[in-house]
Nucleic acid binder design. Structure first.
Lengths: 212, 212
DNA sequence: ATTTACACTACACCAATGTGTAGTTTTCTA
DNA sequence: TAGAAAACTACACATTGGTGTAGTGTAAAT
């Protein structure tokens, strides 16, 4: 049995989903809420395998809600169902623990399919969302070749991210302290920054720093 | 007409895909390669809408290959088809510009479906890959409450990422320089670091820093 | 009412950083 | 093989950064 909770302020959408899902033999909608505030204090959340969550809610937003709910029930599959498709909504939701992201125009069949996918360990997303997510991973293809860091610069940048001093880095890569300084100068130049903190920040944004 | 290139060192897989795809009326496989080296110098790559790419290739790996190929043809949809499912392969590929990631066990029908999805602006992925990708977005739910940064600390951490000095930050948030120092001390303590660079690094890893 | 914790200000001090300038060696290229 | 670019080494110096220590006011907890 797949237990489900729904949080959606629009009555029509809420009841429509509820009936659609309850008509599945192995699905049961435990409870429906019109706000996160109501849901948070309910026992149903703790017993839910799946939580369907709208973003545009009065009071606590769906994004904040996802964060709280995923704290209450770590095992729940949170699926956002929303009309928002802006980056902030999408990535905010995903950061907050959502395991799926669907547009409100989904058909009942698609919704059911999505829930089955989620409990099997998948992540239901519309193709457009999936594309946005993937794109967010792409390395910025350095348009100017001269702004591309060399291999040595990349390794040094990684040491910077670890907070190592000139001396420590010098020892690690068998260079003089000033040799290290030399490379860091060009890193700064290429990234257009003037400090370690900035360099690390840009390095992450440009996906130069390895993300183990 | 959807033009396709294939790069795969295994002859059987290569020819199997080729025939399967060519049997589709609106698909045409321009050329098949057994290595990235061969593909890079070919004209077919520039004319391809879709490039199917293996990771475990001799010589230039599929990951490095994806990076080069996406530089040659920005408009091509690069889809990895591979047996590797480790994080390094997956995220390396995605960083290098892949738009999809499939397991080698895909059926011809699924492959065709995936290609159609890709050219429509979607991102074909197996559910397990999608889940991994989504999980990589999740905020680390700070296990210890006392390690959670306050609102003010978060804003200051963001200033640190921008490389601002104590003085600049102090001016921005109407505090004394030592007041700023006070907060930075607790940031360091909570993140267990001893410098700006490290703090920024951890802030990114823990997804505390806003990623606009 | 007293304690405790927190947010802040303040001062001091040394190590580390960022940058200018300059000389040397290695590597690539024409 | 000459000449240029890149990779280093070296020195100097003002600024900033990290940290120890200490004191003040305010709000919450006991």
């Amino acid at each position: 049995m797949v237990t489900i909770s729904i949080i959606e302020d629009n009555v029509f959408a809420r009841t429509a989903w509820e009936t659609a899902l309850n008509s599945e033999e192995d699905f049961v909608v435990l409870e429906s809420f019109s706000s996160c505030e109501d849901a948070i204090v309910s026992e149903s959340i703790k017993k839910s395998d799946v939580i369907l969550l709208d973003i545009g809610l009065p009071g606590i937003s769906g994004i904040k809600g996802a964060e709280i709910l995923s704290g209450i029930n770590q095992n729940a599959q949170i699926i956002m169902i929303t009309i928002q498709d802006d980056d902030k909504s999408i990535f905010g939701s995903l950061q907050s623990g959502a395991m799926g992201y669907l547009h409100k125009s989904v058909s009942p069949e698609e919704l059911i399919e999505a829930i089955r996918l989620a409990i099997k360990g998948g992540s239901p997303m519309t193709p457009q969302i999936a594309r946005k997510v993937l794109k967010s991973f792409h390395k910025f293809n350095p348009s100017h070749d001269h702004d591309k860091l060399t291999e040595k610069e990349v390794t040094i940048l990684n040491y910077l991210a670890e907070g190592k001093s000139y001396k420590k880095i010098a020892d690690e890569i068998f260079l003089s302290v000033d040799g290290v300084k030399y490379h860091i100068r060009s890193i700064y130049e290429k990234l257009h920054v003037h400090s370690r903190a900035e360099a690390v920040n840009k390095g992450q944004k440009l996906r130069i720093l390895s993300k183990l």
